[in-house]
Amino acid sequence: MRLKKPRLIVTFHTTTAAMGMEIACSRAGLPGRLIPVPREITAGCGMAWCAPPEAQADLEAFVTKENITTAGWYELTL
């Protein structure tokens, strides 16, 4: 498996919200990509936004500004 490193994980209630995050971040040039929700957060399926931890402040401000609904913010070593 690949080398683990700290990652910021943002979860959503719906795929639609996750896709909204991807589009908005892409347009704004903010880092990250969609990954399966890690089991450390919840078992099952679903998508999460994975970004470098140092981007948290920018992403939090951006999500508030864009009115994107998130379910949770986590820092995990994955």
Binding site: T14, T15, T42
Partner: peptide, 16 residues
Amino acid sequence: SGVQSYSRAHPAEMPT
């Protein structure tokens, strides 16, 4: 739904 798979209930959030 592709999300919240271990919940007995279907997700309550729109549009899911």
